[in-house]
């Protein structure tokens, strides 16, 4: 096992299911024998605030917290939140972003304008995998599995083949939703793979 600790940031808006994704991810990492620490802030999460989870794994992890400029991977559930989360990223970091918009209250009330250049700005500075996971989830028949589509993409880029994702999903998802979540996971993996191939020289 490598000595280096990997730092992952998940960011989204309250209600998008970031917590479930971090649970599945950490379950898989723990089962594979990694030391894992995970930190989340959920005080105001239900009221439309920005929600983020930080996950660190490796042989031995001390701090549960990631500082500015220290994270390796960002999984963003919303476009502008991706930009917010990018502040924590290293220069050569990888971003998986859900190309999806949730209007924040100041934009809703007309006092601010939603930035239209999020994806372009991110693509300029980072390696970016962007797709509309909400649309994929809708095609699968349940908009709520958007989060697991994103998880699938994350699983692909982590390149941790020995992780038992199937079991990790099973223990964290209610039984009647397992099938659709497994399908969502598979679709996310495929999308990330084809996006990654697009980067290949």
């Amino acid at each position: 096992m490598s000595e280096t600790v990997k730092s992952i940031v998940l960011i989204g808006v309250g209600g998008q299911g970031t917590i479930l994704v971090s649970k599945v991810l950490t379950t898989a990492l723990v089962t594979a024998g990694f030391d894992v620490k995970m930190s989340e802030i959920h005080g105001m999460a239900q009221r439309g605030g920005s929600v983020s989870t930080q996950i660190r794994y490796g042989k031995k992890v001390y701090s549960p917290l990631i500082g500015v400029g220290e994270a390796d991977i960002l999984l963003a559930f919303e476009r502008m939140e991706a930009v917010r989360g990018a502040a924590l990223l290293k220069k050569d970091a990888l971003i998986i972003v859900n190309d999806y918009t949730i209007i924040p209250p100041p934009v809703a009330s007309g006092t601010a304008v939603y930035p239209d250049n999020c994806i372009d700005a991110l693509r300029e500075k980072f390696k970016l995998i962007a797709f509309n996971a909400a649309q994929v989830a809708e095609e699968l028949g349940n908009p709520r599995v958007m989060n697991v589509v994103l998880l699938g993409a994350m699983a692909e880029v982590l390149q941790l083949d020995k992780l038992d994702w199937e079991t990790a999903l099973k223990v964290n998802v209610p039984e009647r939703f397992i099938e659709i979540n497994q399908e969502a996971f598979k679709r996310g993996r495929e999308l990330a793979r084809s996006e990654e191939e697009a980067y290949a020289p």
């Binding site: 605030g49 502040a87 939603y114």
Partner: peptide, 19 residues
């Protein structure tokens, strides 16, 4: 100072609001 990548995006806050 730990450097973070500067992105030229005008961000909007998400203040918590009544559901």
């Amino acid at each position: 100072k730990q450097e973070s990548v500067d992105l030229d995006v005008d961000m909007v806050a998400r203040p918590p609001s009544l559901c």
